[in-house]
Design a binder for these strands. Structure first.
Lengths: 214, 214
DNA sequence: GGGCTTGTTGTGCAAGTGTATAAATAGCCT
DNA sequence: AGGCTATTTATACACTTGCACAACAAGCCC
């Protein structure tokens, strides 16, 4: 009796991915302190020792996990921008809407985001991962804003453009946080509506009377 | 030899305050996992056992610490609103400026904010503490916005007022985060300038040509 | 100043932590 | 089929953690 546990050999990439996913789940649920190697391994369906076969240590696993999270977040956000046959203004509105609804508004993702950022001061690796994600997002915003202003026959001065991007990024971030933390305080679509109005006001666009669709 | 350590008996309120302060420092520096009873006690200048004399356990200490942090943050923000002989619009601008400069822009406070908020999903006590602070802040914003709109001869509809408050709160929060995380990317006063312009655009106020002072 | 209360220290402990390493076995190669 | 290799398990270990508790002494009261 006391038979040794059966196991399957997974491909290296697959195992790493599973371990990272299990690490993110554990951190979201139990926090950085509760996300122990044993907890993570249990969720990944392996034993704790295996983790050290793929990662030098716990810290490196968590760093890679955070990088994966940031990558996924920015990727999702950018995906909302690929729209053909849409005016720049429509794309901007769709971008804001996408960022203020599921799946980007998500309590688990928010927990992860906050938990890791809380360590950014002390861990330069986390700080850099965040910085890159943030700048990528902001540049994306700036590009769309430039298109919108050009389409509206407004001349975009570079410094002004930067300020617009910073402000709009702040609006989206701020509303995203409120939505993640207190989603039930807002009716469906309310945050997106607030966000679009705020963004258009920031850019000095005259409000449209009615949404063309419907 | 091996003499027992000398100590002073502090008043109960003072000790509790010191322990809470030490807990916040420890969390900011080492995170929730690194903020051990021994670390906290060391920073407070006492031994670990004493903590259990003032708090039922570590968790309760940290909850009280977070409540204290939230209280301090909202208190500082509200303090920026007490200005006599100022127009509502000036008060609003001063409010935005105060929230986007030191001491409210502060990397340590941000670390604490993020660290605790990351646990809000799993810990209802933390969630409630945040909710109260957030709503207090937003109501403060809403009150000032109402004054501004009245002074500007605009009729504030309650629903519109709420949306303005939500948006402005998001603007301030978003810029606050950017300032805390990447303060060196912005020139002094830049965030405040961006914030004031964004807020005034949200409210549909015509920009002022020059600041009256100076 | 001598007791009494209680704030404070110091030690101990069981549970849990990350890491190291030996033993086992799954699955490929020939 | 049978060996080889590297993935995976399992165990051990030194250390830290939160918490419990007994000893102690600071400072008030009379």
């Amino acid at each position: 009796m006391n038979a040794r546990r059966k196991f399957r050999r997974e491909g290296e990439e697959r195992r790493r991915q599973d371990l990272i996913e299990a690490a993110l789940d554990s951190v979201a649920q139990y926090g950085l302190q509760g996300a122990t190697l044993r907890t993570i391994a249990l969720r990944a369906g392996v034993t704790a020792g295996l983790i050290r076969h793929y990662f030098p240590g716990k810290e490196e696993l968590l760093q890679e996990a955070y990088a994966a999270l940031v990558g996924r977040m920015t990727e999702q956000a950018k995906a909302a921008l690929v729209m053909e046959d849409a005016t720049p203004r429509q794309r901007l509105a769709a971008f804001v809407t996408a960022n203020l609804n599921a799946p980007i508004i998500d309590t688990q993702v928010f927990s992860l985001w906050a938990t890791f950022l809380g360590r950014a001061n002390a861990d330069p690796t986390l700080a850099r991962a965040h910085r890159e994600g943030y700048l990528g997002f902001r540049n994306e915003v700036e590009a769309v804003v430039a298109e919108v202003l050009v389409a509206e026959r407004l001349k975009p001065d570079p410094s002004e453009l930067r300020h617009h991007a910073i402000a709009i990024n702040a609006i989206i971030d701020g509303l995203w946080i409120e939505g993640c933390l207190a989603g039930e305080m807002f009716s469906p679509g309310e945050l997106a509506a607030i966000g679009i109005k705020a963004v258009e006001a920031e850019l000095g666009l005259a409000p449209l009377k009615h949404d063309p669709e419907k």
